[in-house]
């Protein structure tokens, strides 16, 4: 019985992120449009886009290999697994112990590795450009991410997300400078990893500074749908991660009654909405930066992560 309810909760979690991810992107686009005084497409437009892409035929380049065709499935699967392992509305899910925070970061790395390879597969200048810049951004974001993990793990004494969330939700933590720094760093990393403004622009296709979109330029039809879906999931994953690490309020503890699950889910939706709104406001208010300014931007995240970690060494209570 316990096992069944465990599997149920884990299944709901997987389904929840699956269903919610396109909605979040639709919401962000809508808010951005409204902030620019446009009407904007419906909030459900991402679902329609995905369905439309699924119905279209795939146009493959003549020399595309099996890797090019397999990559959409692989990256989608890796991101989905990672997203399902980040606690959203409840901690202590059935398979939480499979992967800690380092593994989740590495799973996203696997997805990116294959996507960057696929960008090189057809042999166009755009694909190579996108791949080489993507790996540059990743190479800078990953150490910053790891320092954030250190910082959080030093506070909670664990890299296990459920344990961290439970620990930070408990009253013994309070307000800490180091966690604040780690949060700012994580937001910067999340912006870079999700190809958002100011690092990259998710809504351009023909701009020389584009990174992610250049890499997946050759994809079409159902392959493109999977990759887009993966990107939606990744955005939701990072927002869930920020919520779970720094704002785990009202997150349901494992084994609590159904009511606390409902409250947890409602709070989770609220947190995602707020985060989406803030992201839209931030993106409207900033301009995209030059590619070779990105290292400084991510360097700031690295320094914040390092400072946060060092502060914790100075005093456990900072």
């Amino acid at each position: 019985m316990v096992v069944i309810s465990d599997i149920l909760v884990q299944g709901i979690q997987m389904l929840l992120v699956f269903l919610l991810a396109p909605l979040l992107t639709g919401f962000i686009r809508k808010v951005k449009a409204r902030l620019m005084r446009r009407k904007g497409p419906s909030i459900l437009q991402p679902y329609r886009d995905l369905l439309r892409l699924l119905r279209k035929e795939v146009v493959l380049a003549d020399n595309a290999s099996w890797l090019f065709r397999a990559t959409p499935y692989l990256t989608f699967a890796a991101i989905w697994v990672a997203a399902a392992l980040v606690p959203t509305f409840a901690t202590g899910l059935l398979f939480n112990w499979t992967a800690d925070l380092i593994v989740i970061v590495a799973l996203l790395g696997t997805a990116r590795f294959f996507l960057a390879l696929a960008g090189m597969d057809v042999g166009t200048a755009f694909g190579g450009l996108g791949s080489s810049r993507e790996v540059m951004i990743a190479a800078l974001a990953e150490p910053a991410m790891l320092l954030i993990v250190f910082c959080v793990a030093l506070v909670a004494g664990s890299t296990q997300l459920s344990t961290v969330a439970n620990f930070i939700a408990s009253s013994q933590v309070g307000l800490r400078v180091s966690l604040g720094m780690a949060m700012i760093a994580l937001v910067i990393v999340a912006l870079a990893e999700n190809a958002r403004i100011p690092v990259d622009n998710p809504s351009t296709h023909l701009e020389l500074t584009m990174v992610h979109e250049a890499m997946i330029l050759e994809y079409s039809g159902r392959h493109l749908a999977l990759i887009e879906f993966g990107a939606f999931l990744k955005l939701l994953l990072y927002i869930s991660l920020i919520a779970c690490l720094f704002f785990p309020w009202e997150i349901a503890v494992f084994g609590a009654g159904p009511l606390s699950y409902v409250i947890g889910a409602a709070m989770y939706l609220l947190k995602v909405t707020i985060a989406g709104f803030l992201l839209a406001v931030f993106e409207t208010a900033t301009a995209k930066m030059r590619v070779f300014r990105v290292p400084q931007f991510l360097g700031a995240a690295l320094m914040l992560g390092l400072l946060g970690t060092l502060l914790l060494f100075v005093s456990k209570s900072l």
Binding site: E57, V59, L60, A61, D62, V122, T124, A125, F126, E218
Partner: peptide, 9 residues
Amino acid sequence: AVRRGPAWG
């Protein structure tokens, strides 16, 4: 449906 064609680029 899959169609093969020259690379788009």
